[in-house]
Nucleic acid binder design. Structure first.
Length: 564
DNA sequence: TCGGATTGCCGAAGCCTGTCCACACAGGC
């Protein structure tokens, strides 16, 4: 068993303990252990298998969790978890994912009504039975019903980082190329499609220790679930001469394929997953690579990220496709957190990790004071931090650190810190973290006012969405984008796999309205810094070139290009 | 439950605000 799966079991246990009303410190220990193991490069299984090693040497792993780990590796669970699963249905955990329901309420629902599925819960709300309980009412019933509907919509979809990790593990093993929505860079993915010409690939796939529940196992296709999360993976055998055609077909999108086939028909060809054929005599014209198919159709090569039938075929025909930004174009990361607020590392550790990635500059942007739970900085701490950074830079380090802040935008659009303190800092990201369900007009005014603040260089995670979890807040995007363009405030493309915000349609729109962009990670740990390539993928889906993105510039030009 | 001290026990602890219902719970990164 791999570390992420072990971490998931520990975190799930913590959820159950919370429902059970256990000692908060105990719960916290499980959460901490889960997060430590999740990010650890070394396998827990290897450490436990080595008699010379002691896993309790790892910070946060004591005797209790060490013994749980041994049990988990041996049989997938441990006594404490078994005991709780005997008392609460595993579906209780699903209920925790419905906004408005926390551990206390879930427990009450179970004790009062034996609610064990979301179906039960929905019925209870529809029958207006929830309101019979103390401190519950019509509003909550409505909220829960909405939450369930939303949850069902997103169920069965996975975040891009999860699917990428699985693809990175399986693809080399099977000699396969990922296709489907992962290849297009969609922010969430329903299932993973892998194409291969390697002879024993299907066999290898089905024998893989983490593959289970085979749904199909023919000679051309195998389909099964992978890992504890149950991501569906489809592996297809494709003859080498059809690989390009199959890649085209299985990468999609469906609308793009339809348009591409129409183009083929117009030129007297037929296009399918086996190749491009002349209609008159059924001769194969192309099929081994996508490039030769596109070329035969008189098109420039269309990068997968653009294949949404949003004008890419016309652009490819007229040679007006943009030269899309590449991960190697990125020179800096302008949004990250340290232990000063809710990050896990010091600013020196973040700087070292960023340097290792090849960045030339970073901004440290911890939270501001109104985000109390994150220990946000007040004016005094912010100014002191700016001084500390000046001192750091005085040593002429290879990587330049900018003193920054992710400053909360208050409800009325004012900044959380005084202008004087903000002016001391090199780089201010302005973000919304509260009052996310304002009426659109009020939210628009709020953002417009935030942009007025002279220190603000970029609008952080501009729609506030959290994938599979929370919708974007509502405002008049065009109005804010026009103002941002006029004031020289950039839009962030937040690369955190949970956010990926802005997303493609709004990136494209903002660019049309004259906006510039900054691709940042919002890292809370050194390992998050490598997420910038997800942001680059979003930028590509938004048709951006390096010249649209300010942090592709060398430091001096970057500083000159941001508002000042 | 962990870690560290006091070695069989104690301290740890993001906190503030809105919602919905009647004071507690959930949510914010």
């Amino acid at each position: 068993m791999e570390n992420p799966e072990i971490a998931r079991i520990l975190a799930e246990t913590a959820d159950l303990m919370e429902i059970d009303g256990e000692n908060p410190f105990s719960i916290r220990s499980f959460r901490n252990a889960a997060s430590t193991l999740d990010g650890m490069p070394e396998r827990v299984a290897d450490i436990l298998a080595d008699p010379g090693r002691d896993i309790t040497q790892i910070q946060g792993i004591g005797k209790g969790i060490a013994s749980a780990l041994a049990d988990i590796l041996a049989r997938g669970s441990f006594p404490r978890r078994d005991e709780m699963l005997a008392r609460y249905p595993p579906t209780a955990l699903e209920m925790l994912r419905i906004p408005g329901l926390g551990p206390k309420t879930v427990r009450t629902l179970w004790e009062q009504f034996r609610v064990s599925t979301l179906e039960d819960l929905a019925r209870l709300c529809q029958e207006q039975k929830l309101r019979a309980l103390p401190r519950m009412g019509a509003k909550l019933e409505e909220k829960i019903l909405q939450g369930i509907a939303h949850y069902r919509q997103s169920a069965g979809r996975f975040l891009i980082n999860h699917v990428s990790t699985v693809a990175a593990e399986l693809a080399p093993l099977l000699g396969a190329t990922p296709a489907g929505s992962l290849r297009r860079g969609r922010e969430t993915v329903g299932d993973l499609d892998l194409l291969t010409s390697r002879e024993n690939a299907l066999e290898l796939f089905l024998q893989h220790p983490r593959v289970h529940d085979a749904l199909a196992a023919g000679s051309n296709k195998a389909s099964a679930r992978f890992g504890a999360e149950g991501l569906q993976v489809d592996v297809r055998m494709v003859p080498p001469e059809s690989l390009g055609a199959a890649l085209c077909y299985f990468t999609g999108s469906k609308d793009h394929n339809v348009a591409l086939r129409q183009r083929a028909l117009k030129l007297g060809f037929s296009l399918n997953e086996y190749g491009l054929f002349r209609l008159s005599d059924e001769t194969r014209v192309a099929g081994e690579t996508e490039a030769e198919i596109h070329a035969a159709l008189g098109l420039d090569f269309i990068p997968p990220e653009l294949r949404e039938n949003q004008g890419e075929i016309e652009a490819a025909l007229h040679h007006t496709l943009p030269a899309l930004i590449e991960p190697r174009d990125i020179r800096g990361d302008l949004h990250m957190h340290t232990r000063e607020s809710d990050g896990r590392a010091t600013f020196h550790e973040m700087a070292a990790a960023a340097q290792e990635l090849g960045h030339a500059y970073i901004a440290i942007t911890d939270h501001s004071k109104s985000l109390a739970m994150a220990n946000g900085l007040d004016e005094r701490r912010a100014v002191a931090f700016a001084a500390e950074v000046r001192q750091f830079n005085a040593g002429g380090p290879p990587l330049r650190v900018l003193s920054g802040l992710e400053c909360d935008i208050l409800r009325d659009g004012r900044m959380d810190l005084e202008d004087g303190a903000l002016a001391e800092l090199d780089f201010v990201v302005a973000s919304v973290h509260s009052y996310m369900s304002l009426e659109p007009a009020e939210m628009t005014d709020r953002l417009l006012r935030a942009i007025e603040c002279p220190s603000v260089k970029v609008l952080g995670h501009p729609t506030g969405r959290v994938l599979l979890h929370r919708d974007a807040y509502r405002y008049e995007f065009d109005t804010v984008a026009r103002a941002a363009a006029a004031r020289g405030v950039a839009f962030e493309i937040n690369s955190s796999p949970e956010r990926l915000d802005l997303h493609a349609p709004l990136i494209r729109r903002a660019r049309e309205l004259g906006c510039k962009f900054i691709i940042s990670t919002d890292a809370h740990h050194p390992r998050h810094l490598s997420n910038f390539h997800y942001g680059v993928t979003m930028a590509r889906r938004g048709w951006l070139s390096a010249s649209d993105v300010l942090n592709t510039l060398p430091l001096a030009e970057f500083l000159a290009s941001t508002r000042h």
